[in-house]
Nucleic acid binder design. Structure first.
Length: 544
RNA sequence: GGCCCCAUCGUCUAGAGGCCUAGGACACGCCCCUUUCACGGGCGCGACGCGGGUUCGAAUCCCGCUGGGGUCACCA
């Protein structure tokens, strides 16, 4: 290991599936390491006992693996397993008079902040002068305490690579921040500084929300005699709908908005809605009225089903959401790289290895991008259009691993056929929605009432009439191929004087349940004659 | 509100004083293809936030304003 080797890291706190913003941070760190032949490390910041769970770690790691951002430390670093290290250093800091115990309760601190806010002054914590009596009483009461760092009052300054300039904090904004919480865990500030030094991290690429934290970190580094890493703060990805930071809550907002629309347009009452969703009325009402309330993961699907919102209609926020909707990691990564970085010129779509080659810190962009999913979808379309069929099948398999669909029953050859007849598709969820009827059992075929009305019942059951005749025509067809079906249907159009649309659409609805499907002849061949006739019969049964 | 950051088409961006009548991609509009939804092909619309400087010359440099974002935890 040479001393000039670049070492980066991604240090998420495990709160569940990985957020796209986190994925981008991980990607940039990974790209920098790979570009320079350095190392990229993964550390789990699980110091928040209330939120960190094994399940959350598992999901996080699963997403990172799926993305293909492999880390170079064979053993994952967990902060929760390093308490002895932090405590030793904190003891030393206390012994040197650079840290001390503080006894204010959260409520007391809250009061101090409120008072400061009232007089329009910023609240900055400075070491209180506890009297010996007070101290004795605190200990007597067994009052919990935190450890605070004595932040030397002076100007702090560091160079930020993405900003390309020094960022400065004046002396009067210094304060004694907490480095060990009452529960004995280190705070983020302390853990980050100690671990980055321990892991020999040379470059810290992280979100812009950490910009001002950096002053705390360099103060600590100075006290501990650590060398300062190079800092590069990354822009914040924004929700295009409201211009604010992308947040998990955005999905819930979409559901609420749609629910309100439906209730207004269809005059659906709250009670009616509640009973259809099988939810408590009051619960539903507070959620509808309060933007800060969120539905639970069990409640969401119930509401979505009743208002006719699909998973793919929700804005993807977590990496897992993108996977569920059928994006591939290479597409997501490519797009994410372009949110806050540009290789220059007109280059956009490129494979990972090309991104690795092109990556450099001085081409990182400092303004905040709005996350534009339409363009991502376009990247996906192009990717699938030029991907070898085996790659497409692999993507479909991956999609099916995290989704329920009749398509799971397809053989590899059938998957190839399905993908081929869907040529031009954008994401896998589209293939699924359009083609699942191909593998569905007859009982699983559900007829969309609007489609039935429009293509079959309209004009005095004209569609049903055509369908009945086609049923006999199909029955007597000498062979069941796309070509024979095509000539049969064309012949039928001519003899009956009907346009192709008046004939093909009823068949489409009869076999698929909806007006949307892959090309009809190929679909019929795929299903086979027997199943086609069965479905036609089932559909004909709808005629009243 | 204090502090900090940012500012080119609706969106992501190219652009490092003359190559700019500002380029590309997505979106959008029109046309073509078409049995549905898509895909595809063609054409088009569309931006340097405002005001001052500096300079022979500014999207590019400086200042102010405005706008947007971030942050003010015993959460990371």
């Amino acid at each position: 290991m040479s001393s000039s080797e670049i070492v980066t890291r991604f240090a998420p706190s495990p709160t569940g599936y990985l957020h796209v913003g986190g994925a981008r941070t991980a990607l940039f760190n990974w790209l920098l390491a790979r570009n320079t032949g350095g190392r990229y490390l993964l550390r789990i910041e699980d110091t928040d006992l209330a939120r960190s769970t094994d399940d959350a770690v598992r999901q996080l790691v699963e997403d990172l693996r799926w993305l293909g951002l492999h880390w170079d430390n064979s053993e994952l670093v967990y902060q929760s397993k390093r308490l002895h290290i932090y405590n030793r250093i904190i003891d030393d800091l206390i012994a040197r008079g650079l840290a001390y115990e503080a006894y204010e309760t959260p409520a007391e601190l809250e009061n101090l902040r409120a008072t400061a806010a009232k007089s329009k002054r910023p609240f900055l914590y400075r070491r209180p002068n506890y009297t010996p009596d007070q101290l004795a009483r605190f200990k007597d009461e067994g009052r919990p305490s935190v450890i605070r760092f004595v932040m030397p009052v002076k100007e702090y300054r560091f160079f930020d690579v993405t900003l390309g300039k020094d960022v400065v904090q004046p002396p009067n904004e210094c304060q004694d921040f907490v480095i060990r919480k009452a529960d004995g865990m280190p705070t983020y500030h302390f853990g980050v500084v100690v671990d980055d030094d321990d892991m020999k991290v040379t470059h810290v690429l992280r979100g812009l929300e950490h910009l001002k934290n950096t002053f705390y970190h360099i103060a600590l580094q100075d006290a501990l005699g650590y060398t300062r890493p190079t800092y590069a703060h990354l822009s914040v990805m924004l929700n295009p709908e409201n211009g604010e930071k992308l947040s998990k809550r955005d999905r819930d907002r979409r559901i609420r908005k749609r629910t309100q629309e439906i209730m207004r347009s269809s005059k659906l009452s709250l009670d009616e809605l509640a009973s259809r969703c099988n939810l408590n009325v009051d619960r539903l009402k507070t959620w509808l009225d309060d933007d800060t309330k969120q539905l639970s993961l069990d409640e969401q699907p119930a509401v979505m089903r009743t208002i006719g919102l699909r998973e793919s209609d929700l804005p993807e926020i977590m990496v897992h959401d993108f996977r569920k909707n059928g994006y591939t990691p290479e597409v997501l990564l490519n797009f994410l790289a372009l949110q806050g970085w540009s290789p220059g010129g007109d280059r956009e779509q490129m494979p990972l290895d090309e991104m690795v080659k092109a990556f450099s810190l001085d081409r990182i962009i400092s303004s905040n991008p709005k996350f534009n999913r339409e363009k991502l979808k376009s990247f996906s379309t192009d990717f699938y259009a030029s991907a070898p069929i085996d790659r497409q099948v692999a993507a479909l398999d991956d999609y099916l691993q995290v989704n329920d669909s009749p398509l799971k029953r397809a053989t590899p050859d059938q998957k190839r056929a399905i993908l081929a007849m869907n040529a031009g598709y954008r994401v896998m969820s589209e293939v699924d929605e359009k083609s699942r009827f191909l593998l569905a059992t007859i009982d699983e075929i559900a007829y969309d009432e609007k489609a039935v009305e429009k293509t079959l019942r309209k004009d005095d059951n004209a569609g049903f009439d055509a369908l009945a005749k086609l049923r006999d025509l199909f029955h007597g067809l000498p062979e069941w191929t796309a070509a024979s079906l095509e000539s049969a249907i064309h012949g039928f159009c001519e003899s009956s004087g009907l346009g192709l649309g008046k004939v093909a659409q009823p068949v489409r609805v009869a076999v698929s349940g909806s007006t949307i499907s892959p090309p009809i002849y190929e679909s019929l061949v795929f299903i086979g004659r027997e199943a086609t006739l069965d479905r036609l019969d089932k559909c004909l049964g709808l005629r009243s």
